[in-house]
Design a protein around this nucleic acid. Structure first.
Length: 678
RNA sequence: GCGCCCGUAGCUCAGUUGGAUAGAGCAACGGAUUUCUAAUCCGUGGGUCGGGGGUUCGAAUCCCUCCGGGCGUGCCA
């Protein structure tokens, strides 16, 4: 039976608080226990007496003296000391440190970290790629940050429900369908990929308005002709070619996938350019049960398709299959990236895209109207939550239905939130998106609270993060201004790691080299992200993240590999490491490097706690970095294999636990692989 | 205009409800290798914590103000 103890800092905090309560009679005293700022003050310090003395207007030093009289920490620390204006300094007892190490050793799965006392069912909403787009750097942070949060929560025994809120509904829905139609026309009618040519022409003329107008007019003319050509009167919209094309789509989609991606970008680009040009396009609308050709502004086309689809109905049902095909192909790509990144997100298990909520959207709007929270405003349906103002100082709207009848992400997010609370029984919902969406989530939460869809027993939090920047300090893009594909970025990381392995350790087998390159390359990208404070932007640099010095994945992996090497060598020289660590009595650390490492090892639980409290993995990486630095000092000054048996045994223990912590933190909590040699 | 975030060493960044002398890495300079992986370690220099004011035993941290930057701000997500 293994016993698990709270981190020392929590034990001390509790005891000091108790003592403060006894002295002052005040219930909620705050002990403010932190790691000592300087080793000469001990291991921990309690600053709470000073803060409390201020509140009570008494002498802080005297209060501190009264507190330590009542303070019983004799099982954990040496007698406390008071310093300066009223710091209470605490030094861990060697026996406590050694006992803690023993417990960690006897509990390799948890390293003696107790699970949460009150597990909470938690929904984590993260990654959220878009349909018909390849994942790019913009998805990196949400995906891996969300993954680390899920891993940490699960480690602490919370029930986690991952929700990949895929962007598969809304405006881009119409764009995808239009893009598919272009691909169909290109293949079946024109027998050539005209949109590729058009796309390039539009791009290369982006500063020449006259030329753009001419190109758009040509595109419009072809579109009109194709559109009329694609009609079958008795069936309605786009049936002659497009209908047949959709029937075979599933079989050919892999082959034409690059075309679909390009056509999608073509439609997007066109949508950016068209407004203000006044070009009109032929389409049809059903009036009195009869289809009538009508002219509409070209730029309204994708929106029109979107609305048709959101309205559903028999006439609009042909796209359903197309939709599934595109989604399937997109998610296969995403799954590949997830596997490469080693994140615990799987399609379809964790997917619940925007489209999942489509039938709940009307109900969301209705219910808010019934409650009197949603009102008409300029033709749109809006909620005006308290405390939000626009530039004129007027109430800021949370728009849940557009004037053209379409729903927005506000509506979808409300429906999703309601579903998560009512159906998934979430008691905490964590949204991992970039900080630019802060206002949206603040308003979302305000509306959900006001509507009674999230009560006080449900915690809502928006975990924000900054942008990934290029070396020039602007958002990371290719030279031509496009988002960098995640796939390409990761491949390059692996390639760079590979060449380092090749250089440093050419004798390894092909398999080993590739395995190390992958672990190091992917690990480097993820670790670099984790080690930055999530709220700030950071500059992406392969050279820095793959450096062997400093707070990088390779440095941690190297430390781990060195320990493994020691253990292998020890075995080779006839030491049975496991047997040696069976009996852990009579240990006594004498070397400063041993003591520093031992004391730092037992603080792993503290680091996990801090990282989870604020969803900041950089606390974990900071801890790992300090741990490995302390290990390096130990490694340099304390030989293991050549040490006398008693000394060797306790040094092997430190090695074993250091490796255990590195591996657990990297692999279990951050999803970064370790390697036995590198 | 208003709101949110940010400004820490030449560069990239940490800094745990306000705590003792503000820390790393890179770059620069100087050392260490017959030694368990030198993909390493040790040392040196480098700071008006954007400026100013305030709160107090004590401020990079909290408040005010100014300067500089990023993002957001009614029908994208």
């Amino acid at each position: 039976m293994t016993s698990r103890m709270k981190p020392a800092i929590d034990i001390i905090d509790q005891r000091v608080r108790h003592a403060m309560r006894q002295v002052t009679g005040i219930e909620d005293c705050s002990a403010i226990v932190t790691p000592a700022t300087n080793a000469k003050f001990g291991d921990y310090q309690a600053n709470g007496a000073m803060a409390l003395a201020k509140k009570m207007k008494t002498n802080p030093r005297k209060l501190a003296e009264q507190v330590i009289e009542k303070l019983d920490v004799s099982d954990v620390c040496q007698p406390p000391e008071i310093a300066g204006p009223g710091f209470i300094n605490l030094r861990l007892k060697p026996e406590f440190v050694i006992e803690s190490l023993r417990q960690m050793h006897s509990d390799p799965a948890r390293l003696s970290i107790p699970p949460a006392e009150k597990p909470r069912k938690t929904v984590v909403d993260y990654s959220s790629p878009n349909i018909a787009k390849q994942m790019h750097v913009g998805h990196l942070r949400s995906t891996i940050l969300g993954d680390a949060i899920c891993r940490m929560l699960e480690f602490m025994n919370h029930k986690v429900i991952r929700q990949n809120h895929i962007g598969d509904w809304g405006t881009q829905f119409g764009k995808v369908i239009l893009a598919l139609w272009h691909v169909c026309m290109a293949i079946d009618v024109h027998k050539k990929s005209y949109f590729k040519n058009d796309f390039e022409r539009l791009q290369s003329n982006k500063d020449n308005k006259n030329e753009l107008y001419k190109i758009c007019m040509q595109i419009r003319d072809r579109h009109d002709k194709d559109y009329i050509n694609d009609q079958l009167e008795e069936f309605g919209d786009a049936k002659k070619y497009f209908g047949r094309f959709l029937e075979k789509l599933d079989d050919i989609i892999d082959e034409i996938w690059p075309d679909i991606l390009l056509a999608y970008r073509f439609v997007n680009l066109l949508d950016d350019i068209l407004p203000g040009m006044g070009l009109r396009i032929i389409t049809r609308e059903k009036k009195d049960n009869e289809w009538k050709p009508v002219e509409r502004p070209y730029e309204h086309l994708t929106r029109k398709i979107t609305v048709m689809l959101q309205q559903g109905g028999e006439e609009n049902c042909q796209e359903e299959d197309a939709w599934h095909s595109v989604k399937k192909a997109t998610m296969e790509h995403c799954d590949y990236i997830y596997q490469l990144l080693n994140v615990t997100l799987e399609h379809p298990r964790d997917s619940r895209g925007e489209s999942f909520y489509k039938d709940m959207l009307a109900g969301v709007v209705e219910d808010l109207q019934k409650q009197g929270l949603a009102v008409d405003s300029d033709g749109a349906v809006c909620v005006f939550p308290e405390g939000f103002k626009n530039k004129e100082g007027d109430p800021l709207p949370f728009i849940i239905k557009k004037s053209d009848g379409a729903y927005l992400y506000a509506t979808t997010d409300l429906a999703a939130l309601r579903y998560r609370v009512d159906e998934l029984k979430a008691r905490r919902i964590i949204y991992v998106t970039d900080s630019r969406q802060k206002l949206h989530f603040d308003m979302l939460f305000a509306v959900a609270r006001k509507a009674g869809w999230a009560r006080d027993d449900v915690e809502l939090s928006h975990v924000t993060f900054g942008s990934v920047l290029g070396e020039d300090g602007t958002p990371l893009k290719t030279r031509s201004g496009e988002n960098i594909k995640l796939r390409e970025l990761l491949d390059e990381a692996i390639g760079r790691a590979r060449s380092v392995v090749e250089q440093k350790n050419p004798d390894l087998s092909e398999d080993q080299k590739q395995q190390i390159a992958k672990a190091v390359g992917i690990g480097a990208v993820k670790y670099a992200d984790y080690s930055n404070n999530r709220t700030s932007d950071y500059i992406f640099s392969f050279d820095k993240m793959l450096a062997m010095d400093g707070n990088t994945a390779p440095y941690m992996q190297y430390a781990y590999a060195r320990i493994k090497s020691i253990q292998r060598k020890a075995e080779k020289s006839g030491v049975d490491v496991e047997a040696e660590l069976k009996d852990l009595t009579g240990i006594e650390f004498t070397q400063p490097d041993e003591i520093a490492l031992a004391k730092y090892l037992i603080r792993y639980g503290e680091a996990v706690e801090m990282a989870l409290a604020d969803y900041r993995p950089n606390f974990l990486t900071n801890y790992l970095y300090e741990l490995t630095q302390k290990f390096s000092g130990f490694y340099t000054n304390c030989p293991v294999i050549k040490a006398p048996p008693d000394s060797r045994r306790q040094r092997l223990l430190l090695c074993e636990l250091t490796a255990g912590v590195i591996k657990h933190c990297l692999r279990e909590l951050l999803g970064i692989e370790v390697v036995e040699q590198m």
